[in-house]
Write a protein that binds this DNA or RNA. Structure first.
Length: 492
RNA sequence: CGGGACGUAGCGCAGCCCGGUAGCGCGCUUGCAUGGGGUGCAAGAGGUCGCUAGUUCGAAUCUAGUCGUCCCGACCA
């Protein structure tokens, strides 16, 4: 057993890391906190990106690209924004190296090449984008401006974790400008629903849509909407955010437009983003002790075929059958790999593709050909069954939707059984420590109480759900009156 | 930024206490057999022991320093 995995029960964090590394999604790099996304992981990201990109375009957005560097003075302009990101910025101070005269063969920063103004490697692009929008927006006719960017950003995190929090990560950031507050709010909510649809329908991961408390808001936002998902260890993970930025950035960058009535008004803004962190969510939500489990709709590889044979004659026979299957699956838009490599045997391949989370595995050998069947194994339940060769394509098509649905149902059942209503502080701490998951509890609405709860329990308010029902009650911590329950959890 | 580990072959590790020509497993190469759940046998290739300085006839091993990475916490997508 070359690839024995740590089980979830033994060490959840280590299990997660091993899955990423051994499953071939990513690797540590030579740069602290930065990872190499390997082809298998990058294909997964491409699949996710392609779906999202289409969803953005279907809702009227277009893509553009803005600079990697943000002049320091731009970042300063929106105060809350600057404060939020200042502590984790990579800063470019020089533009040239030279050979070190005192240390042969070594390079040094050329002190004569100091930049007049430091450039910040973007931690997010509001500043550089709003500086551009200033010139793009003159009239109400220029609005709304609906732009998305696919990019990398850098946040110099103190502690990093593969996919969940890396110093550099890939994401998309939408930045829109609107004539009215109502329209901007509508946009922020619309994109939250796009994210929710994507995560639920493609990643098979149920989410709770809600708004953040002021404490947890994005730096510079008036309202932050979020989707929250629950991982198998009972911790919550923020899977995406959408912000109503008010006129903060318009005022900071002096972006005004003329109304029909010929009056100058500041524009209203939103921004929204999801990142490669979603891959971390995917891994933690569905995978098991045998390896990754990837939903068919975004899987880098949907079907793998393993031949079983003795000698070249049988191989030729199997090849012939497999080639027809491969053509049939491809014709139906299903990605498939025929792994007839000689260097590993069938058993090894079975284990390997389970580790990589390929949704469906087909094995075909002499016995199957004689019986007119193929062996089909599904990754989610690990069930194996013999399927008549004639029905194979239809059966695989069925499995693609059935596995997708099963993964969603499984995650939903887990999530729903881990939302616990509590009515006292004792109960709160007990559920948090013994069961985990979301805790629905009354909160008095003050940041002070929120902070104290966090201090004492390490739980944070993940969100105030959008579909919340009003309910009279008293805060579990302070005993003060409350009008609704909010969701607490330990979070990534 | 606090705490804890670790840097020796592509990967995982032993050797270090007690200094004396660098080893094991996996992987890799070649061949033969094998092939329905991580294959067996045989022969090979592969390492400035993180870096620097010191002690010593001699350092992977002792001393000092330094760099880096990972894990756990606080902060964050």
């Amino acid at each position: 057993m070359a690839n024995e995995l740590t089980s979830r029960a033994t060490d959840y964090a280590q299990w997660y890391n091993e899955l990423i590394l051994k499953g071939g999604l990513a690797d540590y790099s030579a740069v602290r906190g930065c990872m190499v996304i390997k082809p298998y992981g990058y294909t997964l990201w491409e699949n996710m990106r392609d779906v999202l990109d289409k969803m953005f375009k279907d809702t009227g957005h277009v893509n553009a690209y803005f600079p990697l560097f943000v002049p320091k003075s731009f970042l300063e302009k929106e105060e809350g924004h600057a404060e939020g990101f200042a502590k984790e910025c990579a800063v470019v101070t020089h533009y040239r190296l030279k050979t070190d005269p005192n240390n042969k063969g070594k390079l040094m920063v050329d002190p004569d090449a100091k930049l007049e103004e430091e450039l910040i490697v973007r931690p997010t692009s509001e500043a550089i984008i709003w500086n551009a929008y200033k010139d793009w927006i003159q009239s109400y006719r220029d609005l709304p401006l609906l732009i998305n960017q696919w990019a990398n950003v850098v946040r110099w995190e103190m502690r990093t974790r593969l996919f969940l929090r890396t110093a550099e990560f890939l994401w998309q950031e939408g930045h829109t400008a609107h004539a009215t507050a109502e329209e901007a709010i509508e946009e922020a909510e619309k994109m939250l629903h796009v994210y929710g649809d994507f995560v639920e329908n493609y990643m098979a991961l149920p989410v709770i849509k809600g708004i953040k408390t002021p404490n947890e808001r994005f730096a510079g936002a008036l309202e932050t909407y979020c989707i929250e998902a629950l991982m198998q260890d009972g911790k919550a993970l923020q899977a995406g955010t959408s912000h109503f930025l008010g006129q903060n950035f318009a005022k900071a960058f002096d972006v005004k437009y003329l109304t029909k009535e010929n009056k100058q008004e500041f524009v209203w803004a939103t921004s929204w983003g999801v990142s490669t962190r979603l891959i971390g969510a995917l891994v933690m939500a569905h995978s098991d002790d045998q390896g990754l489990v990837i939903p068919p709709r975004i899987a880098p590889l949907q079907v793998v075929i393993v031949p079983i044979y003795k000698g070249p004659e049988q191989k030729a026979l199997v090849d012939e059958k497999v080639n027809a299957i491969v053509a049939g699956l491809k014709a139906n838009g299903i990605s498939v790999k025929y792994d007839d490599s000689e260097n590993t045997r069938p058993g090894w391949k079975f284990a390997e593709y389970e580790l990589k989370g390929v949704p469906v595995r087909i094995a075909i050998g002499q016995k199957d050909i004689e019986n007119g069947v193929v062996e089909v194994a599904r990754r989610d339940t690990k069930e194996k069954q013999s399927v008549p060769a004639a029905d194979l394509i239809e059966h695989v098509k069925f499995l693609m939707t059935d596995i997708q649905q099963n993964l969603y149902n499984r995650a939903l059942a887990y999530r729903d059984s881990h939302i616990t209503e509590v009515n006292s502080w004792e109960e709160f701490k007990q559920v948090l420590n013994e069961k985990g998951g979301f805790i629905a509890a009354h909160w008095d609405g003050t940041p002070e109480t929120e902070d104290k709860i966090k201090e004492e329990s390490k739980a944070t308010i993940r969100c105030i759900p959008l579909n919340n029902q009003p309910e009279e009650g008293v805060c579990v911590f302070s005993g003060k009156p409350s009008k609704q329950r909010v969701l607490f959890a330990m979070a990534y």
